[in-house]
């Protein structure tokens, strides 16, 4: 043990490397934890995104075009996350279509985001069943859902003319609730 006293002051490279590695792993975990515990945005500017609207639905606005949220600045946006296999979403679809037809002239747009794992024939049937004409597109790779930290469907975000989120529903909304909010935002 006492053979090489000269070595004593040497910095143990292996140990330092190990410590650095552990610190790095813990830092990544901390980062991940901060992402996980981050809730959905409930106020402030709505995260911008772009989405390609389905091109094979008869009568759908912006069909086949790529739309971005920011291009609707100055309009009220109802951003609705749905999926064809989600029963409560079906009740909303009808209400959303009504609201869109009633108020589109007053600067209101409804954007439907078809949540991940969907997008097949079932999604098209769904849109045709309700005669949906407001723009809808597929959430490729769940990127938009991640941006808004949604945890399921339906979830609905109401965004005002300045691009700020004013209301969030983490459940199906009632049509009367939505009309109250729109009234507050100056639509009638």
């Amino acid at each position: 043990m006492s053979e090489e006293p000269a070595k004593k002051s040497r910095i143990p490279i292996g140990l330092v490397l190990l410590a650095v590695l552990i610190v790095a792993v813990l830092a990544v975990m901390a980062w991940r934890l901060s992402i996980v515990s981050q809730g959905r945005p409930t106020s402030g500017p709505a995260p911008d995104f772009s989405m390609t609207v389905f091109d094979d639905i008869e009568g759908m606005e912006y069909a086949g075009e790529t739309i971005t949220l920011s291009q609707f600045r100055g309009q009220i946006v109802i951003l609705n996350f749905w999926a064809s296999w989600c029963d409560p979403c079906r009740d909303e679809a009808e209400a959303l279509e009504n609201i869109w037809r009633l108020y589109r002239d007053q600067g209101l747009i409804v954007i439907g985001v078809d949540h991940a794992a969907d997008g097949g024939p079932a999604a098209r049937e769904y849109m045709l069943e309700f005669g949906i004409s407001y723009p809808n597109g597929l959430d490729m790779g769940s990127k938009i859902g991640d941006l808004y930290h949604i945890t399921g469907v339906p979830e609905t975000f109401v965004i005002d003319r300045d691009g700020n989120i004013v209301e969030v529903f983490v459940r199906p909304f009632r049509e009367s609730e939505m009309l109250d909010i729109l009234e507050r935002l100056g639509v009638e």
């Binding site: 004593k8 813990l26 934890l33 996980v36």
Partner: peptide, 29 residues
């Protein structure tokens, strides 16, 4: 909500252990 505290605990306890190991490193030949 226990994620944050657990991570802090983990960092502290492993940190102490590594520091002790560092101090004795040369005696562990």
């Amino acid at each position: 909500p226990i994620g944050g505290p657990m991570l802090v605990f983990l960092a502290v306890s492993v940190g102490i252990a590594l520091w002790l190991l560092f101090r004795r490193w040369d005696s562990l030949r």
